[in-house]
Every structure is written in structure tokens, then in C-alpha cells.
């Protein structure tokens, strides 16, 4: 009995004149052109992230991150509910900065999610977060405020390099590769852009190094 799959493939092949097992010869291409040239990865990343309504801070070393985060949070309404952090960042001295963080994935009521990144992209001011053990995808999604810690060394020029980076590090793609470019938004009512749709209302980036 032929299946829907067989019938669809048969129609595709009869339309195209292709045969089963035929492997297309793709032309070898130079890398795709960038939409906007990248002159300086850190400067361009910062400027483009800010144009996407992310806020950006820059500190010299990892040890300075908790105080930078505390400084940022001081300008927001007080955090009364949970503040979660990716386990790989839990060893920083958060308590010393007066912050009570928990190393776990986020629940809907949590107010702040602090994450690392796999890499970042200067062409568009984008963060790349890979899923996996300790890399809770909910930390950058459910809380109102997402804070991402980005070592400047992981800022790459373009998306192609970011994919290559993930593959190099993980061997194959993890369940989710999430490119994040600013706080969630919608323009579904009267084409008016409103920041803070279903995801975070704020994305704050702390550059390190």
C-alpha cells in the first residue's frame, strides 16, 4: 500500500523530473554578504543591541558581574520574587552584592533570570543561548527581566559563525538554539510597537572583558 509519503514524493519527482537517490550538485559559494559590515565586534554589538532596546553595561572581569547586576536592578522596581541563575554562574559572589540568587530553571513567578550565552553576534546585536543541562531555556523566557552575561571574546561577526561555534562545542545542535534580539514585543494592535509581549520586558547585557 502506498503511503501519503510515497504519493507526495512521487508527485514531487514527476513535477521536477528528478529520480530517487539523485543528489543535487550545489554550487560552492562564497560566504553570504553581511547586511551591515562589522568594523569592531564589541562596539557594533553594543550599538546594535541598544538599538533593539536591550540595555548594555561593560565590566572588566567576571568578579565584577554581581555588583553590575545589583546596580542595574537598583533602578527597577524591587525584586520580591525569585531570581534564578544558570548554575555555571552560581559561583560568583552574588550574596556579596546583596543578591539572593537560586541556581535552577525559572518558574513563571520568578522576576529575574540571569544566564550566560553560547555566543553573540555583532552584525545584529543578537545573543545566542543553547539549551542543555544547566542551560535552562525558561530563565531567558519566563521572568520579566533577562540579564545575560557576555564575555567579549564570544562576540562573533555573523550568524553562520555562531552556528559553527555551537556545532564545534556540542558536536550537534542541542534541542534549542535561541537567538535573542532584545525584549519581547508585539505590534499586533494598530501596528503600535509594545515592548513586553509574552516574554521578558527587559533584556540587560553585561559585557565582560
Amino acid at each position: 500500500m502506498s503511503t501519503a509519503r510515497d504519493r507526495i514524493l512521487a508527485r514531487v519527482r514527476s513535477g521536477l523530473g528528478t529520480r530517487a537517490g539523485e543528489v543535487p550538485d550545489r554550487p560552492v559559494r562564497s560566504p553570504a554578504p553581511l547586511a551591515r559590515p562589522v568594523h569592531d565586534r564589541v562596539t557594533d554589538f553594543r550599538q546594535r543591541a541598544e538599538s533593539l532596546q536591550s540595555t548594555v553595561d561593560h565590566v572588566d572581569e567576571m568578579d565584577a558581574v554581581p555588583l553590575a547586576v545589583a546596580r542595574y536592578l537598583a533602578g527597577l522596581p524591587p525584586v520580591t520574587n525569585g531570581m534564578v541563575v544558570w548554575p555555571e554562574l552560581a559561583a560568583l559572589d552574588w550574596a556579596g552584592a546583596g543578591l539572593a540568587v537560586e541556581a535552577r530553571s525559572a518558574l513563571s513567578a520568578d522576576q529575574v533570570g540571569i544566564t550566560g550565552v553560547c555566543c553573540a553576534i555583532a552584525e545584529t546585536g543578537t545573543l545566542l543561548l543553547d539549551s542543555g543541562p544547566g542551560h535552562s531555556a525558561t530563565a531567558s523566557l519566563l521572568p520579566e527581566t533577562h540579564i545575560a552575561v557576555v564575555p567579549v571574546a564570544v562576540i562573533l561577526e555573523r550568524m553562520e559563525e555562531a552556528f559553527a561555534q555551537v556545532l564545534a562545542r556540542r558536536g550537534e545542535l542541542p534541542r534549542a538554539v535561541n537567538f535573542i534580539s532584545g525584549p519581547s514585543r508585539t505590534a499586533d494592535i494598530e501596528q503600535t510597537i509594545v515592548i513586553g509581549a509574552h516574554g521578558p520586558r527587559r533584556v540587560h547585557i553585561v559585557l565582560v572583558g
Binding site: 547586511a35 546594535r48 545584529t124 542551560h135 542541542p174 534541542r175 534549542a176 535573542i180 534580539s181
Partner: peptide
């Protein structure tokens, strides 16, 4: 996104492969 909403990139691009990662607690 440039042709659609005039954004340089959309807020989220998610590339999803397979099921929950071994040892992860979401997905």
C-alpha cells in the same frame, strides 16, 4: 524580517532539533 516588519532581525529565532536534552529540565 527586513521585508516583513522592517526589523533587522526578529526578537527570537529558535532552531529546534529533537526532544529534551539529556539531563535538562525543560523542553
Amino acid at each position: 524580517p527586513r521585508s516583513a516588519t522592517g526589523q533587522d532581525i526578529t526578537n527570537y529565532v529558535s532552531v529546534l532539533t529533537g526532544t529534551r536534552d539529556a539531563g535538562a529540565d525543560d523542553g
